[in-house]
Simulated scan of single mutants.
Amino acid sequence: MGSKVLDNEVTTVGGVLTDQQPLDFHTLGLAGCIDRLTSPLRQRGTVVRWDTPHWGVEIPADCASLLYQSAREMLSNAYKYSEASTLTVQLAAVDHGIRLVVADDGTGFDCELATCGRHHGYGLRLMSVAVHEAGGAVEISSSPGQGTSVSVTLPLD
């Protein structure tokens, strides 16, 4: 066998984590689909911790899809830039909604530059626009050397 195939079929395409499998929220659940995306980070030695206190909440497909895309953006950024040793993914029910938080102990960044610079944070900006259009909220907390925490909250009505 000449080429090495990732057993989990998650690859990095242009620095973006991409699952080659069709998304199957029904079988794997949202957490399972997001967890597959963390495998390149795990392979690199990042410890991935899960915190899912709410399971059993029904998440509509469009909502699950947006949370998945948001997770993909957050995890891709962590993979590309953070050099984190530990990353925590939290998926929790909140008042009338669902919140996804991805936090790491990596290099962090200057939030002002990342969201306002012309060539920076393009993915984060697109993610924010999509979340806001869905009636949700995005919070980004980071500073150089202090790690990064990004949370996306979507309404479930």
Score class of each variant (00 low, 15 high):
W50F: 12
W50M: 12
W50Y: 14
D51W: 03
D51E: 15
T52V: 12
T52G: 09
T52L: 10
T52I: 10
T52K: 08
P53Y: 02
P53V: 06
H54P: 11
H54S: 15
W55P: 15
G56W: 00
G56R: 08
G56T: 09
V57R: 11
V57P: 00
V57M: 13
E58P: 00
I59F: 03
I59A: 01
I59N: 01
P60D: 09
P60A: 09
A61Y: 12
A61C: 09
D62I: 05
D62N: 11
D62G: 07
C63D: 09
C63V: 14
C63R: 11
A64D: 05
A64P: 01
A64T: 05
S65D: 13
S65N: 10
L66C: 04
L67I: 06
L67W: 03
L67E: 02
Y68N: 07
Y68C: 07
Q69G: 08
Q69E: 15
S70W: 02
S70H: 02
S70Q: 02
S70N: 05
S70M: 04
A71N: 06
A71L: 06
R72A: 11
R72P: 01
E73I: 07
E73S: 06
M74G: 04
L75Q: 01
L75S: 01
N77P: 02
N77Y: 02
A78R: 02
A78D: 06
Y79M: 08
Y79N: 04
Y79T: 03
K80T: 08
K80A: 08
K80C: 07
Y81K: 06
Y81P: 00
E83V: 09
A84K: 01
A84P: 04
S85P: 05
S85I: 09
S85N: 14
T86K: 15
T86D: 15
T86S: 14
L87I: 04
L87F: 03
L87C: 10
T88F: 00
V89C: 15
Q90F: 02
Q90A: 15
Q90K: 14
L91K: 03
A92L: 07
A92V: 11
A93T: 12
A93V: 10
V94H: 14
D95K: 13
D95E: 15
D95T: 13
D95V: 11
H96K: 14
H96Q: 15
I98E: 00
I98D: 01
I98L: 08
R99A: 05
R99C: 07
L100V: 06
L100D: 01
V101E: 14
A103D: 07
D104G: 02
D104Q: 07
D104V: 00
D104S: 03
D105I: 04
D105R: 07
D105Y: 13
G106W: 13
G106P: 00
T107H: 12
T107Y: 15
G108K: 01
G108E: 05
F109Q: 03
D110K: 08
D110T: 10
C111W: 14
C111F: 13
E112G: 10
L113S: 13
L113P: 03
T115K: 11
T115N: 10
C116T: 15
C116L: 12
C116W: 14
G117K: 10
G117R: 09
G117I: 08
R118N: 14
H119T: 11
H119A: 10
H119S: 11
H119G: 09
H119M: 12
H120M: 11
H120I: 07
H120W: 13
G121Q: 06
G121E: 05
G121D: 04
G121C: 06
Y122I: 13
G123H: 02
G123Y: 00
L124G: 01
R125P: 00
